[in-house]
């Protein structure tokens, strides 16, 4: 599966379009996941545990989008966008969407 965030797939020709596909994950936004987070709130700096959580949820959202595109018979997703939104206090969503296409 080719995934890009441009309108076309560089070096390839789009022959069929299947419409918008999307994937999302909701995760609890709490820095308490990181044992060091309390200290980091004093010293400042990267919250590694939280970066990992963000990476995992991003990959999962991409995975869900890819599965949806594969079901439609697509072999590429173009014009992919990420979006984050807070659903409730302490919870946030990562939403990824794009256009499923077939390329040569």
């Amino acid at each position: 599966m080719f995934i890009t965030n441009t309108e076309t797939l560089p070096g390839k020709t789009i022959i069929d379009c299947f419409g918008v596909v999307s994937g999302s994950t909701v995760r609890a936004k709490h820095v308490g996941r990181d044992i060091m987070a309390g200290l980091k709130n004093v010293f400042g700096g990267e919250l590694r545990g939280y970066t990992e959580l963000l990476n995992e949820s991003r990959d999962q959202a991409l995975q869900r989008m890819t599965e949806q595109a594969a079901q439609l018979g697509a072999n590429a997703i173009v014009n992919v966008r990420f979006s984050t939104s807070s659903v409730a206090a302490g919870a946030a969503e990562i939403y990824v969407y794009g256009t499923a296409v077939r390329v040569e």
Partner: peptide, 29 residues
């Protein structure tokens, strides 16, 4: 920009790449 910055002679492949980070501010600031 969505257009290529450097003209390419031959494109092997293209893929979505991501990078993320979470950073906290310190107490004083």
């Amino acid at each position: 920009s969505r257009y290529q910055l450097i003209p390419m002679q031959q494109i092997e492949r293209s893929e979505l790449v991501t990078g993320s980070v979470v950073i906290s501010i310190d107490y004083f600031k």
